[in-house]
């Protein structure tokens, strides 16, 4: 099968974003299937952004935020993100879309190896799930 998944990652710039940068500096490789976007805080990502990414063809969305309880630069952004995406996953399940297509990971800024590893894991998982269109070609 020549299908390759295409993923979007939103990273909080204070933790996961720094981890991604260190991964580059330290020459740690991770899957090229993911496009990473730095955002000021994972608490500002709306469920609309994530569903819109799916509608535009992303097969999975990766969200990286600060490890609770005390690492978020804005103190509570990671809790906001958790509540939103916990509910969104529940909602997606009811619509018949696999909730595993959203992955939340929590970091402190030096954990660049964890970032690379979880991204690779996520890509493998999405490869097993198949394309977001469920095999129907557009």
């Amino acid at each position: 099968m020549d299908w390759e998944p295409w993923l979007i990652g939103f990273l909080s710039k204070w933790t996961a974003g720094i981890a991604a940068e260190s991964a580059g500096v330290n020459r740690v490789r991770y899957s090229p299937n993911i496009v990473l976007i730095n955002v000021p805080c994972c608490g500002l990502i709306s469920p609309i952004h994530v569903v819109d990414a799916f509608l535009q063809g992303a097969d999975g969305v990766y969200i990286g935020g600060a490890l609770p309880p005390a690492n978020c630069h804005y103190k509570v952004g990671n809790f906001k993100a958790f509540k939103r995406f916990y509910l969104l996953k529940k909602l997606m399940k009811q619509f018949g879309i696999e909730p595993e297509r959203i992955r939340l990971e929590w970091f402190v800024s030096p954990q660049y190896r964890k970032l690379a590893k979880t991204i690779d894991d996520f890509v493998d998982e999405i490869k097993k799930l198949g394309p977001i269109t469920g095999g129907v070609e557009e």
């Binding site: 609309i48 309880p69 939103r84």
Partner: peptide
């Protein structure tokens, strides 16, 4: 989706650090 956004902002916002995920 907008309602999920609102709930995420205001649900238990003073106790979230104690309750954790």
């Amino acid at each position: 989706l907008n309602m999920i956004g609102s709930i995420g902002s205001i649900l238990l916002k003073s106790r979230e650090v104690k309750l954790l995920f």
